[in-house]
């Protein structure tokens, strides 16, 4: 899986804004305010191919989660990314 290469993350006044452009016009289609941890994950995996497992490892290392918790969180994150159509088709 890969995140949409066209989406960009911008921090402004302490807030994280994820800008997702419309694929045809390039104009911003959706703008989401996200948490620091969400923003970190997007930034960390933006250019990489990832799986639930690699995501879980990253979460575990960053937040000191045990394997089960990290796996559940990773699955949640991927579900959110899919719900917001942030994953490349």
């Amino acid at each position: 899986m890969k995140l949409l290469s066209t989406c960009s993350l911008r921090k402004v006044r302490g807030r994280n804004l994820l800008i997702v452009p419309d694929p045809c016009s390039g104009n911003p289609d959706r703008i989401l305010e996200v948490t620091d941890s969400f923003a970190w994950l997007v930034g960390h995996f933006k250019e990489d191919v990832f799986t639930v497992k690699t995501l879980a490892i990253a979460l575990s290392e960053r937040y000191g989660l045990d394997d089960d918790t990290a796996a559940k969180e990773a699955a949640n994150v991927i579900q959110i990314w899919q719900d917001y159509h942030l994953i490349e088709p």
Binding site: R13, G14, R15, L17, I19, P28, I31
Partner: peptide, 22 residues
């Protein structure tokens, strides 16, 4: 982005500027 925290900026303004900067 550099303004003091006690100066509130409307959400729409922040988003507009963020998109333009992008």
């Amino acid at each position: 982005d550099s303004l003091p925290e006690d100066i509130e900026i409307p959400d729409k303004t922040l988003v507009q500027l963020a998109v333009m900067a992008d």
